[in-house]
Amino acid sequence: MDVLSSRVLLHPRDPELTTAFYRDTLGLAVYRQFPGGTVFFLGGGFLEVVGTGKAGATPDMALWLQVRDLPATLAELREKGVEPERGPQREPWGLDEAWIRDPDGTRIVLVEIPADHPLRVDVRGD
């Protein structure tokens, strides 16, 4: 299989509310819009809010969004009325994480990778 692109598809109960949350509250840039949906840039991938869902969020799925500065991101979100479900903490695997939820309750894990974490090590060698 040769994957050329990828997206996460969300089918929210209230498409307008959820689109506004990702566009206006989180500030994600719009990649494209079409009748019935909006695709957002999501780092190395895309998030597509499309159609209307019935079930809402599932605890088995979360969005993992790496940010440059977790405290600054949380302060910005608080100014927009978003309180974290779980505040920032260092996880056993060494990442700093905080959790928020979208209007349907989908968990969004905001992650900052500390400067000394192995994910930041240059693996190209000397």
Results as ranks from 00 to 15, higher is better:
Met1Leu: 13
Asp2Lys: 15
Leu4Phe: 08
Ser5Ala: 02
Ser5Trp: 00
Ser6Gly: 14
Ser6Arg: 11
Asp14Met: 04
Asp14Phe: 01
Pro15Lys: 01
Glu16Cys: 00
Leu17Ile: 11
Leu17Asn: 01
Phe21Gly: 07
Arg23Ala: 10
Arg23Cys: 13
Arg23Ile: 06
Thr25His: 02
Thr25Asn: 13
Leu26Glu: 09
Gly27Arg: 01
Gly27Tyr: 10
Gly27Phe: 01
Gly27Ile: 11
Val30Asp: 12
Tyr31Gln: 14
Tyr31Lys: 12
Tyr31Glu: 08
Arg32Gln: 02
Arg32Glu: 03
Gln33Thr: 15
Gln33Ala: 04
Phe34Gly: 14
Gly36Ala: 15
Thr38Gln: 15
Phe40Trp: 01
Phe41Ala: 00
Leu42Gln: 08
Gly43Gln: 08
Gly44Tyr: 02
Gly45Cys: 06
Phe46Gly: 02
Phe46Asp: 00
Leu47Met: 03
Leu47Ala: 09
Leu47Trp: 04
Glu48Cys: 15
Glu48Ala: 03
Val49Ile: 07
Val50Trp: 15
Gly51Leu: 08
Gly51Tyr: 14
Gly53Phe: 00
Gly53Leu: 10
Lys54Phe: 04
Ala55Pro: 00
Ala57Pro: 08
Pro59Cys: 10
Asp60Gly: 14
Asp60Arg: 15
Met61Ser: 11
Met61Asn: 11
Met61Lys: 04
Leu63Glu: 06
Trp64Gln: 03
Trp64Tyr: 06
Leu65Val: 05
Leu65Tyr: 00
Gln66Leu: 00
Arg68Gly: 10
Asp69Lys: 12
Asp69Asn: 07
Pro71Arg: 01
Pro71His: 12
Ala72Gly: 08
Thr73Asn: 06
Thr73Val: 09
Thr73Cys: 04
Leu74Asp: 02
Ala75Arg: 07
Glu76Lys: 01
Leu77Ile: 07
Glu79Lys: 14
Lys80Trp: 05
Lys80Glu: 05
Val82Met: 05
Glu83Arg: 13
Glu83Trp: 13
Glu85Trp: 11
Gly87Val: 13
Pro88Glu: 13
Gln89Cys: 01
Arg90Ser: 04
Arg90Glu: 14
Trp93Ser: 02
Leu95Phe: 12
Leu95Tyr: 07
Asp96Trp: 03
Glu97Asn: 02
Trp99Met: 12
Ile100Arg: 05
Ile100Gln: 01
Arg101Gln: 15
Asp102Val: 03
Pro103Phe: 05
Asp104Pro: 01
Asp104Gln: 14
Arg107Cys: 10
Val109Gln: 05
Val111Leu: 00
Val111Asp: 10
Glu112Met: 07
Ile113Met: 00
Ile113Val: 13
Ile113Gly: 00
Ile113Gln: 12
Ala115Asp: 14
Ala115Val: 08
Asp116Leu: 06
His117Cys: 05
His117Ile: 10
Pro118Ser: 07
Pro118Val: 05
Arg120Met: 11
Val121Gln: 06
Asp122Trp: 12
Val123Phe: 09
Gly125Tyr: 06
Gly125Cys: 11
